[in-house]
Computed example of a mutant assay.
Amino acid sequence: MYDVVLLTLSSERDASGGCGSGEACCGGADATGAGVDGTGPTPGDADSCATDRPRVPVLACADALTARGARVQMVTARSDAEIDAVLAQLDGPARPDGLTWPDADGKTRLVVATASDGQLRAVLRRLVRRYAPAPSRRPADLRGDRTLPDLPPVAVLPLDPARGGAQRDLAAQLGLPRDPAAVAAAVLDGTLRRLDLLRNDGGSVTLDGALFGAADDAGRPLHWRARVEVDDTVLTNGDEPLLACAVGNAGGYASLDDVTLLASPDPADGQVEVAVAVPVVVRSAWGRKRVRLEVRRARGRAVSVLPREGKVPYLDDGVEGELTRKRSWWVEPGAWAVWVV
């Protein structure tokens, strides 16, 4: 039978008043307590991060697992180090090259209880940091199109029932079970579904996608400029205004209001889909000017966004940030996996 670790992320603060748990804090922060580009914790997660007591879905999932004979360990991680201690249980045997590698035949399985997509990303980010070898130590048995091995699969236990409806989280997009008993069944009896992962040169990862752009206090979109390039295709070189840019692995940012940005995002096709929304002035047959929104799209293995002026606000897996310099993402095909029924 399996050993199952039920991992929940805590919002506990350190003595200085900052976030002492890295990205474990309320779904999205780096080791300084700031977001991936210097912002604070994700707004809207205060209720879900208000206590370290196990939530009802976590207890229900633990009961369902125990009833099936699994040995269950419930962990509330308050720091990156505590997340890493859980992930160490997924390590494989020692390798001759000294690399830390996941155990492909291990009997320990991981369930991540998530109040937000940012919390799931926090765990995947630690998995990447644990198992991705330095370029100078790349082993011969690593896939040629990847920089890291197959990451250990995870089961996802959503803690917010509402996000399975209109406010669709990644678990809802992927059709993952939300009921604790169904999650337990997936862990013990399910199959693997391998998914693409986006890594970026800032050291983080993206599971769903990123959306760039901002609006004023009245909700009107603000113009900004950036060079956006997908492989060898330049969607915009930065000399024209943009209303939005979507970098999609899955479909969480496929549309903005009534505008379809991403046509067919697929989290398992080995490509990233990128779209920019450009306001274009056109003349009617009667000579009248009007503005229409032109959406340009491209698909590829990598994308870069280079701001041309100021800071560009964005959401990355629901975590707020501001882009002030060039950022590049690339696809790691099939690098992570979830347990499905």
Rank of each mutant, 00 (worst) to 15 (best):
V5P: 12
S11P: 15
R13I: 12
G20Y: 11
G20F: 09
A24P: 12
A24F: 14
T39W: 03
G44M: 10
G44A: 09
A46C: 02
D47H: 09
D47N: 05
C49K: 05
D52N: 14
P54W: 14
P57V: 04
D63C: 09
Q73D: 13
M74A: 12
T76A: 13
E82L: 14
D84T: 15
Q89S: 15
L90Q: 07
R95Q: 13
P96T: 11
G98S: 05
T100C: 07
G106D: 04
G106V: 05
K107V: 08
K107A: 14
T108S: 06
V111N: 01
A113M: 05
A113I: 04
T114W: 06
D117V: 06
R121W: 07
A122W: 07
L124P: 04
R125C: 14
R129Q: 12
Y131G: 09
Y131N: 10
A132M: 15
P135N: 05
R138G: 05
L151K: 12
L151P: 14
P152E: 14
P153Q: 10
G165D: 15
D169H: 10
L170A: 04
A171H: 06
L176E: 02
D179G: 03
P180N: 02
L192R: 12
R193D: 00
R194H: 00
L197G: 01
R199G: 08
N200C: 12
D201E: 02
V205L: 05
L207N: 07
G209F: 04
D216H: 06
L222M: 12
E229W: 04
V230Y: 05
D232N: 09
T233A: 10
T236M: 08
N237V: 13
N237W: 15
D239I: 10
E240C: 08
P241K: 06
A244V: 10
N249L: 01
Y253E: 05
Y253A: 04
T260M: 09
L262F: 10
A263S: 13
A263E: 15
D266T: 00
P267V: 00
V272N: 00
E273S: 00
A277L: 14
V278Q: 11
P279I: 02
P279M: 01
V280F: 03
V280H: 08
S284T: 15
W286N: 08
R288Q: 13
R299V: 00
R301K: 04
V305M: 02
V305R: 00
R308P: 02
G310D: 03
V312Y: 09
L315R: 12
D317V: 06
V319D: 15
E322V: 11
E322P: 01
T324Q: 07
R325L: 02
K326P: 13
R327K: 08
S328V: 05
V331K: 00
W336P: 03
V341N: 09
